[in-house]
């Protein structure tokens, strides 16, 4: 397990080490798993009820596959901890948060002031995701007119 620098949850962090997706299926008691960019997040969907921590690894700033993995898990109803690890930098935080990450374990610790600014950057958002924020289009049409 990698220590999170930021964690937006009240429950106790999982203490077990995160296992790979391959070994996760066999270890029927594992509650923590680590997704690499090439892994299919949908392989985890049968196990959501026993999963309490998913670490999504970002090997580099530019590899955006983890953003899709996160949304897929949240869209399927996963409510456990979703942790971004690896090449996680200040300027990604708000987007990662929008995709469903609620904890962050950057390789290199982030400057607290910069990180705070980044988390609070966007007053509003254009898209609907599962992060609970109301998109701008819904604010413009309160009452949820579906046309």
């Amino acid at each position: 397990m990698v220590e999170a620098q930021y964690r937006f949850r009240d429950d106790e962090p999982v203490a077990d080490p995160a296992v790979t997706v391959d070994s996760f299926g066999e270890q029927s008691n594992a509650a923590a798993v680590r997704l690499e960019p090439g892994d299919d997040a949908r392989d985890l969907l049968p196990y959501l009820d026993r999963l309490r921590l998913v670490e999504v690894n970002f090997p580099s700033f530019g590899d955006g596959r983890g953003y899709s993995s996160a949304r897929i898990l949240r869209e399927a109803g996963y409510e456990g901890e979703l942790r971004a690890v690896g090449a996680v930098f200040v300027d990604q935080l708000s987007h990662l948060r929008r995709c469903g990450f609620d904890s962050f374990a950057p390789e290199v610790a982030l400057d607290p002031v910069d990180a705070e600014n980044a988390f609070n950057r966007w007053p509003d958002v254009y898209q609907a995701t599962t992060d609970g924020r109301t998109p701008i289009w819904a604010r413009r049409h309160p009452g949820g007119n579906r046309g």
């Binding site: 955006g64 929008r98 289009w137």
Partner: peptide
């Protein structure tokens, strides 16, 4: 345009 601007999932294609 609005959908694609700052789309959080698609900034590192």
């Amino acid at each position: 345009r609005q959908w694609s601007s700052f789309h959080p999932e698609f900034l590192h294609l």
